[in-house]
Design a protein around this nucleic acid. Structure first.
Lengths: 340, 340
DNA sequence: GCAGTCAGCCAAAGCGCTTTGGGAGCTCTA
DNA sequence: TAGAGCTCCCAAAGCGCTTTGGCTGACTGC
């Protein structure tokens, strides 16, 4: 059933039927009702390809997915996707993943924009002066950044969590508990989230006259093994930290293993706090010693991003609105006062 | 730059230019060269929306993503996606994720098919008589199943790993090591992979005159906590198992925690083997006791599925070819001979 | 030398929508 | 009663491709 058939059946022109269905005012209410009724009865659904060709609107949102033999997709992605999908579903909006060479995402962004494949894209895991943001901005492709860049000479819409605030709070608590040597096992410091987290810890320590020297910082890809190695190398120093802040639950698994391997205990010898993006399959409260966390649901972020993307597409949201979510600090058994 | 402009510039008809670009024979080689040169020089790229409307081909592959507030996406998905994306990229093929109500995927499949949004779909995590497979088959939408159904009255193309063989091998080894009471912590037994795994274990035990009674089987969603709970309840039985086969690395984390909590050791009191889909961020060799595994890269499966999907779309692959990959058994420190 | 073949090109008709630019019929004002 | 101003509707022109159905001119075979 296409528009031609439907309009013929209703003895109306395609114009009128189209307008009736799309809510234009120049059609009487009675006609509109007749049309919508018939459309529903016959299960008419406009052909998206045709509509897209005519309007240029795709009815899809996009994401450029960096791939490559040595590129790993962040496991947080599924949770983000759960949220995004859950919202998108209610709007019959599909998500297009465009795989890109991780070393040359630009080509893919250009293709996506030129083809008008999608109405908007979101960008995740931004770096300080992320070129993708400048690029999509310049291409005129509507977008939303999940996270923040830094030092860009224009404003842009984003959704981020308060990484600095979260780690500031966590570190401040550790300081209050008497810890003097606090270490940070961070994610890749090319990414802004890691920079903000370090800044948060540093600021908290500074307020207490404490330092965060390079030898107490690790900046690594967030795997269990890197958590282990980092913790081990930190704890085997002559003056080991008495507390560790860690950027992910997965790395925290490795930290716990390292602490145990060294014959130490949490929180007796080392206090541990980690950031939790909320995985359904790995919960901080179920660690052998329940883990204190800074918590923010990445799933909720996905849903919110979908919501804002929809708003931008339909013109309800404009401009460069930045949104920063506060982060909960959840204290559990893994932190205690510093010994001595 | 569109076809009209390009053909005008070349003093040729749109027909000829189109044919030249698409490799049709009724255009001279010299003309073809002129055309392709000019196209490249001016960066001409056919508008996919227009092409799609004209041909009905979308140039995309699809996946219906079940979503919902209480629905969790399998964390293996990102790895699968890495493989799929890596291959798809080389063919400039995009992936469309269509979020669906987890309780009613059918509507979404119908929409996807009716809209001709994608040229083919893949279906993952199939159940024995999975209705999605019958549905897409009947809708005439090209597809490929990752995994297998069972008891369907028609053949269909799929890619699966030899789950039964893998767990048969693993269990057989445990039996050979003298284990009499072997338990299985499985995934959701509504899914065929879990059924096959149970079958594999059962068959291995049966050959040795051993049984796999219901009280030594757990069938749960694959989270760390469920691994913990299952292991605990198994090991607290009057006659606890001396060996456990486990369907995922994430659950194995919980098993290890439970064993430790009970004051037991691996492999002294309990041997443990788990299935490893190969995550970059959690490796069995880095468990506190290196974990024996049945290993099969889900990433490789993703790449292969993309490859076959492409082949099916272009007509190179036809029929209901099933492909079953063998699984490696990797023995590490977590298994030992049964005590006594 | 003439019908038949074939390579190489083209005009035009789709694909199924949206949107522009009217145009008929009616009411209302002066 | 003429003209303006509505309200509703329509025909037709896109959107940018692919594909059908020729058409032309050169070449073959007898």
């Amino acid at each position: 059933m296409n528009l031609k058939q439907l309009s013929h059946m209703l003895q109306l022109s395609q114009t009128t039927v189209s307008r009736a269905l799309n809510g234009y005012p120049e059609v009487s209410e009675e006609t509109r009702r007749r049309v919508t009724d018939a459309a529903k009865r016959h299960g008419y659904r406009p052909n998206p390809s045709a509509r897209r060709l005519a309007t240029g609107k795709a009815g899809m949102i996009g994401y450029v997915l960096p791939t490559g033999a040595s590129v790993d997709i962040d496991p947080h992605f599924v949770e983000f996707l759960s949220g995004l999908g859950d919202y998108a579903r209610s709007h019959e909006l599909d998500l297009v993943l465009s795989p890109a060479d991780a070393d040359d995402e630009e080509t893919t962004y250009r293709r996506v924009a030129a083809n008008k494949q999608v109405d908007a894209v979101y960008i995740s895991a931004p770096r300080p002066a992320d070129r993708r943001i400048s690029l999509v901005n310049q291409l005129g492709l509507p977008f939303l950044v999940h996270g923040r860049a830094e030092g860009l000479d224009f404003d842009y819409p984003f959704l981020d969590i308060d990484n600095e605030g979260a780690f500031h709070e966590a570190a401040r608590l550790l300081v209050q508990l008497g810890h003097k040597r606090i270490a940070l096992i961070n994610g890749d410091d090319g990414q802004t989230f890691a920079i903000f987290r370090e800044r948060g810890v540093r600021r908290a320590l500074a307020s207490a006259g404490l330092a965060l020297p390079p030898e107490r910082i690790r900046s690594v890809a967030m795997t269990e093994e890197n958590g282990y190695r980092s913790a081990r190398s930190l704890l085997e120093q002559p003056e080991p930290p008495t507390a560790i802040a860690c950027s992910s639950l997965i790395m925290a698994l490795g930290v716990v293993r390292a602490v145990r391997d060294l014959g130490l205990t949490i929180p007796g010898d080392v206090s541990l706090v980690a950031h939790d993006d909320v995985f359904p399959w790995l919960r901080p409260e179920h660690f052998s010693v329940p883990l204190s966390t800074t918590r923010s649901s990445i799933r909720a972020a996905g849903a919110r991003i979908a919501e804002r993307l929809v708003a931008r597409i339909s013109g309800l949201e404009e401009g460069a609105r930045g949104e920063i979510w506060p982060v909960d600090l959840v204290v559990r058994g893994s932190i205690a006062g510093a010994a001595g």
